[in-house]
Design a protein around this nucleic acid. Structure first.
Length: 660
RNA sequence: GCCUGGGUAGCUCAGUCGGUAGAGCAGCGCAUUCGUAAUGCGCAGGUCAAGGGUUCGAAUCCCUUCCCAGGCUCCA
């Protein structure tokens, strides 16, 4: 019998009898691997374990504790979920059940329009464990389109997918179950099969370390005009330990949640009296915000920005001219009718005001680039279901600037701007970045093809020159121009979109903004919109979560808490505070009405960078005891002036006590 | 806007079968004076989100509205 030879990931070759499968390969390498194997990568494509191998193929065995392995576990668990739901709700229609980051979901339509409740999750999990206990095989079949339509005649969503495959429209991952002539299915039992590209684990008995996490509504094909399906989210891992570790990660994210920390640290709140998405900043949150804004202002002064101000409300004309009313009226607060039918709007954007400032007199090319900066408060009528803490609000303040420049200046201006942005973000302790380029949105954009092409090409070349990873976000641009956004990685590996830089050829035209060129002719400026924090509120939320509330000393609302050991030391404690405050340090005393331990504990819970304790020795030696945040052993007898110097250096360097 | 789950003291939460409101922390008062993460005692604090309904009786059951959370859609 002829043999076949396959290549393993380490570069070695292995000879197997003709007709051998990926499972046979795993078995030939070792019994442990054979027992662990879930699937195989054959020439870079994931395949079932019973796939026959061919000479020359590069094969690696997929085991549970790998990205591919977990993906297959989750995908197979999603099938078990669908089967469990069809057993518990006979007649349930199942739509799609893909894997997502850290888990999977499956969408259903229940008979009679029924909905899942949270209590159903436990019942469904129980049924899933029954199915896993049955150790049903996952059997792959190929079907012609017509046969598939027959097999799924009771499953309208599957029929839609099959029809899309037939038309060759199944281009995204969710629908990629075959080519225009055939589709694949996986059969678990005579009563359950699902349309699927695969691969899957050999049998349901290989699953089990899973949890269903929540129920949600979700629109069919993600379109709010379609019916809403019932979605169940879950996750699965290679072991119970890995599952527990994942749940621990979720708990860590919850511990850092800025809404929770905002409450605990007395930074801000969302009183019901104000309405959704409207925050008030308490003194400590106000201090943090003021420090952020003051630093930003100083950077912008250094960057040759001019500071401007504009009102929060304006007549409709302005937003008709800008095009916002045409495209985003639904996202704006409804107008107030004043002065015999004049409609006034709360501003959702600052740009039209800045254009008016540009237009307030004749401009010369000698003034360009003209950079107008404003902490501009804007109001957006976000849909009720989307507001979220400080990250998605209805009233916010943007660190907004608009740069007017010539076409020739555009490239250099953008590239300087990107450096400016990244330096500012680094000054706030953010270190990991990548860029996203959002291009022309189909169906809602103004401007010519040439203008868009030029704008996109300019942004792309600037982004590439920055040397950061660049991801394309096709169709994600604003209606007036493409944008680069800076995506920032935080301390627990999440990414947030922060800064945006948008190129705009349209607004200057709409407002007929011009400058006089060196040739004495009127020319059209280019406009660059840019917000670095995005909004001050959102930036604060991201920083709070990044630092888990333990802010670097310069951003910390309270920097030093001075505690006398006994009330006899309170006077010296106040003296220490006076010394520090003279240098602008935010320091305070808590009088010795309570035991020292209790006062220290309170200061620690407030995440104050330095707790300074002073007793008899300190009063006589003019020293302090320094208990730094994050440290377990306080220093005794530090000369006050030494502490003061260290503190001021750390503040200037934007450091944290944890860095020392 | 849609789906699911919530809303009890400033905060975190308990409250059984429908029988009339509880704890810890925080606050206030008094005592305590202490060298590195909770001193003791006492006091006060509530339209149980709001409105309506069922009931002899509602925090509890029903309806409406508001607000919050997790998703979906949206995000100039």
């Amino acid at each position: 019998m002829p043999d076949i030879e396959v290549l393993l990931p380490d570069g070695s070759a292995r000879t197997l009898p003709e007709g051998s499968t990926a499972h046979d390969l795993a078995a030939s390498i070792g019994p442990r691997l054979a027992a662990d194997a879930l699937a195989a990568m054959v020439d870079g494509v994931p395949r079932d374990l019973n796939t026959p191998l061919h000479t020359g193929s590069r094969v690696s065995i997929v085991t549970p504790a790998s990205d591919e392995g977990r993906d297959i576990l989750r995908h197979s668990t999603a099938h078990v979920l669908a089967q469990a739901v069809t057993r518990l709700w006979p007649g349930a229609k199942y739509a799609i059940g893909p894997t997502i980051r850290d888990g999977f979901y499956y969408d259903f339509a229940l008979p009679g329009g029924a909905h899942f409740s949270d209590d159903d999750l436990a019942r469904i999990e129980e049924m899933m464990r029954v199915i896993i206990g049955e150790d049903q095989p996952f059997v792959r079949h190929e079907h012609s389109i017509d046969d598939a339509l027959g097999l799924f005649r009771d499953q309208p969503y599957k029929l839609e997918i099959i029809e899309a495959v037939r038309r060759g429209e199944a281009d995204d991952e969710l629908d990629d179950v075959g080519d225009a002539t055939a589709v694949s299915t996986y059969e678990n039992s005579p009563s359950f099969r699902d349309l699927c590209r695969g691969p899957h684990v050999p049998s349901t008995g290989r699953l089990g370390h899973f949890a269903l996490t929540r129920v949600a509504g979700a629109y069919w094909r993600g379109d709010e005009h379609n019916e809403q399906l019932q979605r169940i989210y879950g996750t699965a891992f290679e072991s119970d330990d890995a599952l527990a570790a994942h749940l621990h990660q979720l708990a860590e994210a919850e511990r850092r949640d800025h809404r929770r920390l905002g409450q605990e640290l007395d930074l801000f709140s969302f009183p019901g009296e104000l309405g959704p998405g409207l925050a008030i900043f308490h003194p400590k949150g106000g201090t943090m915000r003021r420090v952020m804004e003051e630093y930003s202002r100083a950077r912008h002064v250094a960057g040759d920005y001019e500071f401007v101000y504009s009102p929060h409300i304006t007549k409709a004309d302005l937003f008709e001219t800008s095009g916002h009313l045409q495209w985003f009226a639904e996202g704006m607060y409804p107008p107030m009718e004043l002065d015999e039918g004049q409609r006034y709007y709360l501003k959702p954007m600052n740009c039209p005001f800045h254009v008016l400032i540009f237009k307030s007199r004749q401009r010369s090319y000698r003034e360009l680039p003209l950079r107008l900066f404003e902490f501009g408060s804007v109001y957006r009528y976000e849909k009720s279901g989307v507001v979220h803490g400080l990250t998605r609000v209805r009233g916010m303040t943007q660190d907004d600037a608009h740069i007017f420049c010539t076409r020739e200046q555009m490239g250099e201006e953008l590239s300087n701007l990107l450096t400016f942005v990244l330096n500012l973000l680094r000054d706030f302790g953010l270190r990991e970045f990548y860029l996203e380029l959002s291009t022309r949105p189909p169906g809602k954009a103004v401007g010519t093809d040439e203008e868009w092409a030029e704008a996109e090409a300019t942004l792309a070349s600037v982004a590439e020159a920055a040397g950061l990873a660049l991801v394309r976000d096709e169709g994600g641009g604003a209606f007036y121009g493409p944008k680069i956004s800076v995506q920032v990685g935080d301390a627990i590996g999440r990414t947030h979109q922060l800064s945006t830089i948008q190129l705009d050829f349209q607004t200057p035209q709409r407002f007929d903004a011009t400058f006089v060129g060196a040739d004495n002719a009127r020319q059209r400026p280019i406009m660059i919109h840019r917000a670095l924090f995005g909004s001050v509120e959102r930036m604060m939320a991201i920083l709070i979560e990044h630092y888990a509330g333990a802010m670097p000393t310069w951003l910390s609302p309270d920097q030093v808490r001075v505690l006398g050991v006994r009330d006899a030391h309170d006077e010296y404690a106040r003296e220490v505070v006076r010394v520090l405050r003279a240098d602008g340090v935010r320091a305070s005393v808590e009088a010795a009405d309570e035991p020292l331990g209790a006062r220290i504990r309170r200061a620690k819970m407030e995440k104050i960078p330095y707790v300074v304790v002073v007793g008899d020795q300190d009063v006589s030696a003019r020293s302090v005891g320094v208990n730094a945040r994050g440290s377990n052993d306080p220093e005794r007898g530090v000369p006050l002036d030494d502490f003061r110097r260290r503190l001021l250096d750390q503040i200037a360097a934007h450091g944290s006590p944890e860095d020392d």
